[in-house]
Design a protein around this nucleic acid. Sequence first.
DNA 1: TTAAATT
Length: 388
Amino acid sequence: MAASTLQRSRAFKEAERLFLLSSHEQIISTMETQVSNGPTGNSLPNGPVVSTNGPTDDSKTNLIVNYLPQNMTQEEFKSLFGSIGEIESCKLVRDKITGTVPAATTGISAGQSLGYGFVNYVDPNDADKAINTLNGLKLQTKTIKVSYARPSSASIRDANLYVSGLPKTMSQKEMEQLFSQYGRIITSRILVDQVTAGISRGVGFIRFDKRNEAEEAIKGLNGQKPLGAAEPITVKFANNPSQKTGQALLTQLYQTAARRYTGPLHHQTQRFSSPSLLPRFSPITIDSMTSLAGVNLTGPSGAGWCIFVYNLSPEADESVLWQLFGPFGAVTNVKVIRDFTTNKCKGFGFVTMTNYDEAAMAIASLNGYRLGDRVLQVSFKTSKQHKA
DNA sequence: TTAAATT
């Protein structure tokens, strides 16, 4: 008994050490976020938006954003969606429990991202534009989803089902057809094997519009054999991520940290197989780029590593920079430089990335990348860009 | 062998 307790304690400490080593930058950015959110205690940090002239209809301006990268911060979230238009309010939803753990104990000073958030625009046209330009955007290992938020109500909560024992041959569409008789399906997913890329694991999720629809589906389908399947399926309510225990959350956090610590190179290799990007590899190596004589890099002062992007078209906008650089890692800011009078892009822009390795990989991959009929020049921003 | 969808 005492021995196993001691072992667990040591494992916990080791996980903690790994986390502290691997996510230093993220901790800093989290702290910065807290500072920029203003002093705590004398404002209304998370309160509802109060309208002074009657009830407001947010249905055309308020968006829900799903499948965000785990390490995306509130600031990055706001920066990405703020590049579309003026934001009335936005919130990256984070776990409450980890936010209560003392930072001195864990090095984690705010709740972990739950992977989704809300953006409420001032102008409905910007909300529409955000859906059109950012839905499907690849950020690191995720493909984000941007859609209108349904009005918040108790009836749409806990409407998510976990399904197991599905025939391996059943497609997502077939699963939806099976469940759609019980209500409106918001999302569905069949989990697939990661190594064989695409073979069903026989388990999946179905999210209904309403909780009572989910309940009816359980009654009707749990223990039933679909079509001519050999085995019955199991249908139950899915675990709710936001209802995990503090211990479970911390364990997951440490596991995430351990993966980051041991396996970043593998992930980066995968990013280049992204079919939508197909970057050409530049003959310039990362090491030779950083050791060029007479070049003074401006990073990593405070915000991160600033990257200079040259030969953008006059029509280029911020979203193209997010699309190009987002898959390589944490991007905190993008800016297209425009002519003051014409508002057209002057041919260049800047991207700020948090982590050196990710910035270097983005540069190595995107320098020389052909965008339309132009070949981009991408480098770390230097103190003297217009040399000879 | 349960992935991060309602502030």
